[in-house]
Design a protein around this nucleic acid. Structure first.
Lengths: 216, 216
DNA sequence: ACATGTGAACTGCTTCACAGCG
DNA sequence: CGCTGTGAAGCAGTTCACATGT
């Protein structure tokens, strides 16, 4: 029990924890106070055993014979995922994808605050988006340090992505979310996730072609 | 050998096939004609054995002692992934994310053509985006059928996502790419992928919090 | 000689089934 | 009695190592 030992948590478990948290928020809105692993599982297309196993990696949060307190489990998951604090995010690239991401409400709602936006286009530099002013990507390292950025979102053209990633890493940022359709290389201590929209479409193409499903 | 038997291909294998294809295109541009599993593996942060195993699920495409022909393997992968044809895609939701996706060059480049855009906003319906005119989502089923849509991209608000998904499925579409931050439920024969940007950020938050890496 | 293709070993995730506890 | 928490079993994906073919 406890979060003491730094077990190796699998990617799939982390994804499911995020999902559970979403469901708990929905259940809370509906006024549900208590929930069984069975009900969580149904909502998330998984199994009750999987839910319990996932949670048991971090401790014992349920009451036998009863289930889980929605309120408690919700705040436990928020804490486990590190969502009990505000993360400072830099958005690099103020193009179409960048601007869509900037306006994306779900980020803010979950504690990710875009504290700075950078671009190289002189026509964009200096413009205001809400309360932030677009910075010149020329001074990227300085800006990221000054703003104590925790996470960098890369929404830059594919040709520039690796170069920008290198600079972001140089600036000491430990987490990168990449939207460019390329495989970035970063040191192992830097966390990297890709949002690969074309690859998702290709997986659908494959599923349509072979008749293979995609779901679990 | 051959694609005859419909083995069950794992999600990770499909993702890697997409990656290999990208790398092959890059290598081809550089004029490389032949490639070993070792080189492909290095480029994709995986192992040579993994590359060979992935490919061996579909046949034997290499020459012993030599490696793989870039040109041949590229076209084989394109065929395997179903990218040797043009897929007809409907974009549902003409908001910020929708418009960013519409302009996203990587889709077109890979054979995914957005043949229709739908929305419910009267101010948007009828507007032209390039060569397509925004349709009233009221007539969704009819539009999707008329346009022989293979894949629907959902870029709608989270509250509407499930309802829209149901209608898309009713219209006979067999593949859905969901950008709304919610878990959709569709029949098993329909292929569904989620692009969950907030969940990727949450995975980064978790990695930063625990010190766990994210990579393989 | 060299790199593929593949059975066998291994590792790790998922499911099962039940003891334990409210 | 019901539902959790968890060892143990089962299964899937990855890595190893070598026979095979050029």
């Amino acid at each position: 029990m406890g979060t003491g030992v730094a077990r190796k948590i699998s990617e799939s478990t982390v994804r499911r924890l995020s999902l559970y948290l979403r469901f708990l928020e929905e259940f809370e809105e509906q006024g549900t106070e208590t929930l069984s692993s069975e009900e969580l599982a149904r909502r998330g297309s998984t199994t009750a055993a999987q839910v319990r196993k996932d949670l048991s990696l971090f401790g014992s949060f349920g009451k036998r014979g009863l289930g889980y307190s929605v309120r408690e489990l919700k705040s436990t998951l928020r804490r486990l995922l590190g969502l009990d604090r505000a993360w400072r995010v830099a958005l690099i690239g103020a193009g179409r994808i960048g601007s869509a991401l900037f306006a994306y409400g779900d980020f803010r709602r979950r504690g990710f605050t875009i504290v700075t936006v950078l671009d190289t286009d002189p026509d964009k530099i200096g413009a205001r988006w809400g309360s932030v002013r677009i910075q010149d990507a020329e001074g990227l390292e300085e800006v990221l340090r000054r703003e104590s950025v925790d996470i960098a979102i890369l929404a830059v053209p594919v040709e520039e992505a690796q170069r920008v990633a290198d600079r972001v890493v140089d600036a000491g940022v430990q987490a990168v979310l990449n939207f460019a359709p390329t495989q970035l290389h970063v040191p192992t201590e830097v966390a990297l996730r890709d949002v690969s929209m074309s690859m998702e479409l290709e997986a659908l193409s494959f599923a349509l072609t072979t008749g293979n499903g995609t779901g679990p």
